[in-house]
């Protein structure tokens, strides 16, 4: 059941930004996006579905490109936009879905690998499924809570307008903060060994 949920999220969520585009009148780009991501999904399904993260990656990169070429400084300088989206905020916010599905697809990949390896090593199949389901369920709860909280926080920030910061200051502050966070996380992860059971 949990496996099915992970696959569903990994397959459906990368398509959502393009469905949002379709709904807002950008049929050509929306359909092209759906076709491209669908093709990647089909290819990964042919390889036992363990590379569903490629679909999320392709969706994320496509959404970033479309967004970059449809709004902001680049269309302003080039005097041409890739597409005109009615509610660009909804499209930009929909980037949360491929990001979410990217993590879920890695969880699914890990789930499949563990289920396969542990059954070879003599673990009871039922027990392995139950424990991996619990792990995946627990991670989904964390991810969903983080997604819900990020939406709530975004709404709060935009509603109350606490800070009036110009884009470049925001960029520098956010970059510095995340570089430090990323360095800390990567150092912590590097410190963990790869112990084989």
């Amino acid at each position: 059941m949990m496996r099915l949920a992970l696959i569903s999220v990994s397959v459906i969520f990368p398509l959502l930004p393009f469905i949002a585009l379709l709904a807002q009148g950008s049929e050509a780009i929306g359909l092209a996006g759906i076709a491209l991501v669908g093709l990647v999904e089909a290819l990964s399904a042919a390889r036992r579905g363990e590379n569903l993260n490629h679909a999320s990656w392709s969706s994320l990169i496509l959404v970033m490109l479309i967004s970059l070429l449809s709004q902001g400084y680049i269309p302003y300088l080039l005097h041409v936009a890739l597409t005109s989206v009615q509610n660009i905020a909804v499209f930009d916010a929909s980037m949360l879905f491929p990001q979410y599905s990217l993590v879920v697809s890695y969880i699914y990949k890990s789930y499949s690998r563990y289920a396969r390896e542990l059954s070879i090593k003599g673990f009871e199949e039922g027990e392995v499924s139950a424990e991996l389901n619990s792990l995946a369920g627990s991670l989904l709860i964390i991810l969903s809570s983080a997604a819900a909280a990020s939406i709530a926080l975004y709404c709060a920030i935009t509603s109350f307008r606490l800070f009036g910061v110009d884009p470049f200051t925001a960029l520098i502050t956010a970059s510095a903060f995340f570089i430090l966070t990323a360095r800390y996380i990567i150092n912590r992860i590097k410190g963990s060994h790869n112990v084989q059971f």
Binding site: Q71, A89, S175
Partner: peptide, 21 residues
């Protein structure tokens, strides 16, 4: 953060907060 600056789009804060959380 870079994308949010170049596109001047605020909804990019959401995936940013998501990662942070």
């Amino acid at each position: 953060a870079l994308l949010a600056t170049v596109t001047a789009s605020r909804p990019y804060i959401m995936p940013l907060i998501f990662s942070l959380l």
